[in-house]
Design a protein around this nucleic acid. Structure first.
Lengths: 335, 335
DNA sequence: CTTGCAGTTGACAGCGCTGTCATCGCGGTT
DNA sequence: AACCGCGATGACAGCGCTGTCAACTGCAAG
């Protein structure tokens, strides 16, 4: 920067002013500085700027997986929203969802000097992390305000949406609905399971035990094998589409038809969900809107603006496709 | 840090030594410093360190999408490998793959002071970007050494693998194989299309025009509709699984069966590929190995080590499942 | 008892930038 | 004519850390 100043025949401070688009610089000087910047191939040093301003214009993201539909879609939205606001993203994955791992990740982000932290896929534990990040606001993508009032919570109404999906199945005439849940302990899994349970209890139906998956098609397949063996199962709600795909495959491999014998509803509307052999009925949420809303609120906090707590519910839409139908008069026996 | 020094009754420099695990500090002093660090709740300031060392221990990643199987799997591997080596990841997405957008992203990463740059999903244009990043090594995930000798290239042998897949289809007895490619101009699309073409030409078969998709199931569906109308089509190789899924759906919706009438091979082995109604024959590559290999080589460069140019080919495996079979005596007409 | 040397510690400068405050013109007021 | 106010500019300090080099220990060797 000193070089540029010399080249332009101005003080270093003036170069700084021009670079940062501060007012009160004559146009002629501004032009001269820009020319010098160009000539010297000057690029401002972010570290030095961060050192003095105590701001890095960087957001830290903590996630556990980048491959599943939900987190990867939200990540994309977060990145876009951040970039538009002039922020960069520092990405940290934690192999496990343990509070310790998350705490460590947050610590390393704070050390990195991020201005805010975003936690995708909150595990149950996030509420209990109770991790202090003095001066660094935290955004959690979950629909329940939870027990950490300091943190910002944004998310679709998983619980309500799932309840609706199950009620739709009940409305079709199914006696009850089984559930393949995500990993126990995760907020998302729990919220979805709660919605399912609420619908069942609201309609005074039997609440069968939920099967626990891990979001993968393989775990859905395993659950499907178990469910195929129970002759009374006619409707299953899966906590995501991948598991629903695995489940359907298991059902079909046991000679059952979907939706002939068993109706299946998934969640998240994967890119391929509409193009399966049996297009999947699923719950679609606008991940991009959720991400943007969250980042906006986080940046309000970061930049000391009044955080408009509009907290408009982000809508979830039930997309009815071919995997659901009224229950059969008599369900086939599994092979 | 000054506070910690005062608390421990040592010089600031000694605290610095302890923090950085430098030798030549008495154990007793070291313990005292650690205690003071704990007591003061001290966290080193990365910006200040970066300012003086000129190193940020940060890698910049440029990508276009985080949702498709390939890039998201590689991203995960890159993050893991980087974290294990003590590096953080700064993520930048570019909406388009234009050279300009990529150049800009790289510029912003350089300004951010990253020690190295990783480009996922290289577009054709990356070779032509010709972007100078003096002092910042660049890693490209592509199998062809390309025209930019300065940059590190790591990738599975897409071309060879695709050739094998097509030869497998030919070996089944198919007269020729059609191809649904990725977006034109991308390295990955091109390499895969080249492999397909090479196999066909090697066997002296007719090379039908390739259909261009955009990696999504929807584009595969569109291609499938077109292919269903051509009665001579009995085998299709898709540049990824999502498009293959869309394609199969289109074929089936036109009354054709897979693999009865048409055999389909995909690529990338998505989480759900083995669990589809017709489990998909596909090409699986070890993304994690590719990512680790790449990061290792990049860090060799970053840290000034001799970059062991072992360049072991990362293997690609053909997973034969139910979507491929010998061609029918007479292919059905599409509805 | 001196000398040398390795191991240990500290003083100080400076990385590249921005915030603060002083300074300098210039035109408009009294 | 003296004054004021404001826009434009610059001098300088200092953000929190590490690299350099000097200084100071104790102990073994001469």
């Amino acid at each position: 920067m000193a070089d540029v100043a010399r080249l332009a025949g101005v003080a270093q401070k003036t170069v700084s002013r021009v670079i940062n688009h501060e007012p009160n610089v004559r146009d002629e000087v501004r032009a001269r500085v820009f020319a010098a910047v160009e000539q010297a191939g000057y690029r401002p040093n972010a570290a030095a700027r961060a050192l003095v301003t105590q701001r890095t214009r960087t957001l830290g993201v903590v996630t556990m997986s980048t491959t599943f539909r939900g987190p990867s879609a939200i990540l994309a939205g977060v990145e876009a929203a951040a970039r538009e606001a002039g922020y960069s993203i520092v990405l940290t994955r934690t192999a496990t969802g343990e509070p310790r791992a998350i705490s460590e990740a947050m610590d390393s982000l704070v050390a990195r000097g991020v201005d805010g932290i975003v936690i995708l896929e909150p595990a149950e534990s996030t509420a209990t992390i109770g991790h202090e990040t003095p001066g660094t606001p935290v955004l959690l993508f979950e629909d329940r305000p939870g027990e950490s009032p300091e943190w910002i919570h944004v998310g679709a109404d998983d619980r309500g949406a799932c309840r609706e999906a199950v009620e739709y199945l009940l409305g079709l005439g199914h006696g009850t609905v089984h559930h393949v849940a995500g990993p126990a302990g995760w907020r998302t899994s729990d919220a979805r399971a709660e919605g399912w349970r609420a619908a069942l209890e609201g309609a005074r139906r039997i609440v069968p035990p939920a099967l626990a998956g891990d979001w993968t098609a393989a775990s859905g397949y395993a659950a499907g094998l178990a469910l195929a063996a129970q002759p009374d199962v006619t409707a299953v709600f899966c906590a995501n589409d991948d598991m629903a795909i695995g489940l359907i495959h298991a059902l079909e491999s046991r000679g059952l038809s979907v939706p002939g014998d068993v109706s299946v509803v998934g969640m998240d509307d994967t890119d391929v969900s509409a193009y399966l052999h049996t297009p999947l009925t699923t719950l679609a949420q606008d991940f991009d809107a959720i991400a943007r809303e969250g980042v906006e609120r986080l940046l309000d906090e970061v930049e000391g603006r009044a955080p408009e707590s509009r907290r408009e519910a982000v809508p979830v839409e039930l997309r009815v496709r071919a995997s659901t139908a009224p229950p059969p008069a008599k369900r086939r026996e599994a092979r």
